[in-house]
Structures are given as structure tokens and as C-alpha cells.
Nucleic acid binder design. Structure first.
Lengths: 125, 125
DNA sequence: TTTGATGCAAAGTATTTGCAATCGG
DNA sequence: CCGATTGCAAATACTTTGCATCAAA
């Protein structure tokens, strides 16, 4: 994989974010740094970086959102506003339990999504 | 909410599935029962049923896939073929641990996604 | 010089929406 | 009858792709 300004910018800008953007959302951000970058380049590079394990697709069935943090962490999803946050409860469930393979599935990792209401949406109720 | 043939069919067909379809995928299935149903009707009803809590969006940040099962269960996601399966390991991690709220988040439930390779994709390696 | 990477634009896929017609209570 | 719901089609949103050009090694 060659170096390119574009790929570097995509990787670095994603790493700075706490949100989990789609390709087009990251495009808007990276464009502030490289105004002439194209949307296709962003999508192509995200897929490339994903294959190399340099960024994570959200490992929850949503293949179109990316996470620049490789280290394990959990997420909180607000059912009202649907924002997704990084979230590390004091007790991370499951982490202490052994991962068990079955005949059908070879498990490499596991991720927990907490689901409920964020503070703002709670206040509106 | 009034009754309609269409809504009933959408709800019932989704309930029969073990997969977690998008709107257009469910449309193909429901159409075998109601050939004249329209795609827009399927999307509109899924959103309606979701708001009433009658179906679940996949509580993992993927708002475009639906699950007809309300009772808690886990999922396995194959990183290669990207199929998503219902999955209940013998030890469901986290279930025995208390759910703890924080100042920012009111947690209503939690879901674990196991991530790795399914049997078929493993065989190809 | 060679080939991977890019910009651009067109095509493809998934979802939402406006509106007149229809159906259920 | 009245308003919720529908079918249809057009519009929107997001992603992928073909191709000529550019740039890294």
C-alpha cells in the first residue's frame, strides 16, 4: 500500500473523532483539510483501511459506519435521537467471561451495545 | 392505529424469519403473500411498528434492519460474508451482571454481538 | 517507468416522500 | 363520511464503479 496525502488525512481525521461517521460524513470533514479530495476516494480508502484492520467497521451489523479506535470499547445507542456514543461502564459486561466457540461460529471478539435514552432525550420526556 | 391487511402481513412475515432483513428484503417476502403491496408501505409500516415497540430495529446502530423477536437474544456477525445470525452461546456474557446507569445514559437494555467467522467462511480459508 | 491511487461523473442500491385513490371505523 | 392507509412514481440519500490522469517508488 503506497502512501498518499488523501489516505493519511482520512485515517488521521477519523482517529480524531468521537462519532462514527459514514463515508460521506467523513468526506465533509476531510474536505476541510484537502478541499480537492473526492468522495470516491474516501469510500475506497475506508474499505482498504478496514481490510488492513486499521479502522473498524462498527461491528454491529452496520457496515457503513467506521470507528478509528482499535482498542476495545463499548457503545451506547440512544433509541430516541439514535446517536451512538463511546461508552465504558464501570463494569464492562462479558469481558471477564470466557469466549466459547461453537461448531458453527469461530468467535474472535465480542461487543456490547447499551441501549436506552441519553441525557438530553431523557430531559425531554 | 387501524388494521390493514398490509400491516398484518408485514408483521407476521417478519415474525417468521430468523434473518434480519432490510425493508426492501422484507418487501420481496411479503409480496409473495400480497402481490400488490408497495415498497413504500413496507418501509412506512416498519417504522410505525418500531415506534410502537412491536418490532425491534437491530439495536446495534443499524437502523435499517429489523428483528421480529422481542425477547432478548444475541447475534453473531461473520466478518467475511457479513451475514448476521441469531446466536445464544451457553454463557451469555453480561446477562448476570447488573446494568448500571450513569449521569449521561439511562440504560434500558444491552445486546452483545459476537464477531468472527462462520463455518462456511472458515472452511474457505 | 510502472502501477497504485486519484478525481470526476455516471450508475447502482436503499430509502423517503407527495399525492390522489381507497379502505376501515 | 372522515381520516388513516395505500399504490405509485418521483425524489432523495448513500455507495460503488469505469476511466483517464496523476504521482509514489
Amino acid at each position: 500500500m503506497r502512501k498518499s496525502q488523501q489516505r493519511t488525512a482520512i485515517f488521521e481525521e477519523l482517529g480524531k473523532l468521537k462519532s462514527h461517521p459514514r463515508g460521506d460524513e467523513l468526506y465533509d470533514i476531510v474536505r476541510q483539510r484537502l478541499p480537492r479530495i473526492s468522495l470516491g476516494t474516501v469510500y475506497r480508502n475506508l474499505e482498504l483501511l478496514r481490510q488492513r484492520g486499521m479502522v473498524l467497521e462498527l461491528p454491529c451489523g452496520d457496515f457503513n459506519r467506521y470507528d478509528g479506535k482499535i482498542s476495545p470499547h463499548h457503545h451506547f445507542l440512544c433509541r430516541q435521537c439514535r446517536r451512538l456514543w463511546d461508552f465504558n461502564p464501570d463494569i464492562a459486561p462479558g469481558e471477564s467471561k470466557p469466549i466459547k466457540n461453537t461448531a458453527d461460529f469461530q468467535i474472535e471478539s465480542q461487543f456490547t451495545v447499551f441501549y436506552g435514552l441519553c441525557r438530553q432525550c431523557l430531559a425531554k420526556t
